[in-house]
């Protein structure tokens, strides 16, 4: 069997995590290509619906990456996002998806290394968990598998 390559959606806030991802680029710090970045102005913009939808569409893991606590460009969007992530984790557990597939992280704009490390760490964590339990089980794939 082909090695499982996790697909991670990373919602990154423009001011910190997205910039940190750019910084990782300028420092040429590589991380797994399966980490896909969606830019949002603030993690406070990340709706629980977006998190669930990412899993529904086949993500193996979801990362919400914002500023460090206290550093939010919009005061406390990251704190609100963290609460929403906790709420969504409970929903995931009800669905039967391991809550640890969803993760919140904070980093500052200059922390390219932290971004690359976080991206690598979540990928490894998800790799250990295996593919998302709701993936590949719908009718079209389910039959094939």
């Amino acid at each position: 069997m082909e090695q499982f390559e996790p697909v991670i959606v990373a919602f990154c806030c423009h001011y910190c995590a997205y910039t940190a991802a750019d910084t990782a680029g300028s420092q040429r710090l590589s991380y797994p290509a399966g980490v896909k970045i969606v830019r949002v102005p603030c993690t406070g913009k990340v709706d629980a619906k977006h998190l669930l939808t990412a899993f529904e569409k086949g993500a193996d893991g979801v990362l919400v990456a914002g500023c460090l606590v206290g550093d939010c460009h919009f005061k406390d969007g990251n704190v609100k996002a963290a609460r929403r992530v906790e709420f969504t984790k409970k929903y995931l557990q009800e669905i039967g998806i391991e809550a640890e597939r969803l993760e919140m992280a904070g980093m500052s704009a200059g922390q390219g290394k932290e971004f690359a490390e976080t991206a690598t760490a979540i990928t490894e964590k998800i790799r250990a968990l295996g593919p998302s339990p709701v993936k590949g089980k719908n009718s079209c794939c389910g039959k094939a598998a």
Partner: peptide, 17 residues
């Protein structure tokens, strides 16, 4: 939302089909 969901659609297009 339509834009974010469209992004997710594309990002995960080949994953679950």
């Amino acid at each position: 939302d339509a834009q974010i969901l469209a992004s997710l659609d594309q990002l995960l297009a080949k994953v679950n089909v």
